[in-house]
Design a protein around this nucleic acid. Structure first.
Lengths: 254, 254
DNA sequence: CCACCCGTTCGACATTGTCGAATCAGCCGC
DNA sequence: GCGGCTGATTCGACAATGTCGAACGGGTGG
């Protein structure tokens, strides 16, 4: 296995770094963060600038992500088989449950939101397609973890950051929950990611049975978790049915 | 000027190619399209796969864009100074005009939509942030062309594709229109891009006076172009005011 | 006016990516 | 069920390519 191309890997690392920092970074910062000589970093940065993946502030010299990436990102969405199949089912799930719907895929130890349907009421909401959600504190993430041993192993090595008082931070506790997810076929979460918010999710399977994504709803904890503190059974059923419908849709073609 | 890094340029070319095809491509297709040996292409593709920029269909072996690009794309939006400043003004413009608002930036000879506010009525609309619009057939594009000599020169060499019966395809006619845009300070278009649709746009200037983007509205031609066939003066004023407001907002800081 | 910081340039080295042919797997037609 | 094909993947040798570190230059703040 002759190694991957390092200049490309370094370029990708720079792009990820710029995406994290969510702002412009100087050449020195980039070089220091990646332990690269300034000259090398500059060469990569200039190339990335040439192809439109990064832009440079002409006054400060700082670098930021470039416009070409936005187009590539939406091109990814357009070509995404999963998303195009799931859109209709997501809409019906939102209408039936009255809650916001999200579809997530694993990316780099987090959950990437690839589709988002607003809650049907008229409250102002922000579109978070493209956002990263924590794996261990969301229903979507728990589903993905439960059905992917490799992901679960990676998470086990990572630090489970606490987002609220109820976030699961004990690896053993998380493992137990994941086992329950596997037997039940769905996952839930209540105030583990954001106070007052709860969510339910179920797995989406590609042809072959592999879990490639998860679909779920999220909303106020007192609506998601019925009278008791457990998720409302009819909502669980709605989510589960939607997930099965999408999975079935994915089966029926090449 | 020691040349840009070729492996990165080739990787970018592959990504752009995958974005165009809007579907999965085989290794052979990619290699042929870029005049590269299959072995080389495979190495780059494998590296891109490793960093999540492309994914591979395990059954057919075809390649498609990867999920990491989606996150980079939205990270670009989050870090985008122009967009964050413009959001509020775009909302007020949409409310005042009653039409859909778009903000566009030049990308590679086209207009990249970086922000999109839906028309205030409840008609179903699709978000086209990240889409590419033709330069010569949209008000946004005309504005960008009028104030950027380099872009205008490039467009002059390109073929002006006809989208509707009214699309401007004569380079001389386009040049005349661009001159009018420069003197008027705004651009318009009626059924040159889509039948029944018209649009108005004005330039957004960065500190220094350089035109870096355009903001505009679009809607049914009978609402945009008042009784006569020319754009409604009050809409033109609204767009122009919004553009000035955003530009002023960009001035007032570093 | 000087000193510092930071982006940029340059040239030599050897590491790194490139190339083309050989291999392997899957698919269709026979 | 068996050949021939298309298309993805592997391999190894060559040299072109990217890497590195030091020196340059412009801008800013003291």
């Amino acid at each position: 296995m002759p190694g991957p191309i390092q200049s490309i890997e370094r370029a990708a690392a720079i792009l990820r770094l710029l995406a994290r920092g969510s702002g412009r970074l100087g050449l020195g910062d980039v070089a220091a963060s990646l332990d690269l000589p300034k000259g090398t970093t500059h060469g990569i940065l200039r190339t990335l600038q040439g192809v439109g993946f990064v832009e440079q502030d002409h006054t400060s010299g700082h670098y930021r992500l470039g416009a070409a990436l936005l187009h590539l990102g939406t091109s990814y969405l357009d070509a995404n088989e999963l998303r195009s199949r799931a859109i209709n089912w997501a809409d019906t799930l939102a209408a039936r449950s009255g809650e916001a719907v999200r579809i997530g895929t694993p990316l780099d130890g987090s959950v990437l939101v690839v589709h988002h349907v607003f809650r049907p009421d008229d409250t102002p909401q922000i579109l978070d397609v493209g956002s990263l959600l924590p794996m261990h504190a969301t229903a979507l993430g728990k589903v993905l973890l439960a059905y992917d041993a490799e992901l679960a192993a990676r998470i086990r090595r990572a630090e489970l950051t606490s987002l609220t008082r109820r976030t699961i931070v004990e690896p053993a506790a998380l493992a137990r929950v994941l086992g329950q997810v596997r037997t039940a076929g769905w996952a839930s979460e209540a105030e583990e990611c954001m106070p007052g918010e709860a969510s339910i999710a179920a797995p989406i399977r590609a042809p072959g049975g592999l879990v490639v994504a998860a679909i779920g709803i999220s909303g106020p904890v007192d609506r998601i978790c019925a009278p008791s503190s457990t998720p409302a059974p009819e909502l669980v059923r709605d989510v589960h049915d939607a997930a099965r419908a999408v999975s079935r849709d994915l089966m029926t073609d090449g």
